[in-house]
Amino acid sequence: MSMRNAVAAIFFAIVCVFFVFSALMIHSFGVPDATDMDDRIIGGFDMENNTYYGAQNETGANNVVTSVVFDYRGFDTLGEATILFTAVAGVVLVFRRLKK
């Protein structure tokens, strides 16, 4: 059992080194790398075509996060609802036999 702990400790140390190194080497906090998709969603005024774009113009919702959750990425929300349903079904199934 100590053999297992030793091997686990070695791999854990390697993972520690990777995590700390990448936490120090990642880009600075507050300056995200690519924001094209999010800027498109947040919206603005297109000077060339003289039109508005963005979430507020397309979905009518003032809350951009809600319009992302329910409109742009509705499939994610559908999968999430399925996962919640599966969790409820699993919990009820696990405890069903105990109640009798």
Partner: peptide, 30 residues
């Protein structure tokens, strides 16, 4: 304003209320 989004909010809200309360209730009862 937002078209179908508030209706979806109500549907998901009902789902989350019932789901979370069912989880807590069943675990506490068992």
């Amino acid at each position: 304003t937002a078209g179908v989004i508030p209706l979806m909010n109500f549907a998901v809200g009902l789902k989350v209320i019932a789901g979370l309360f069912a989880i807590v209730l069943v675990m506490a009862y068992a």
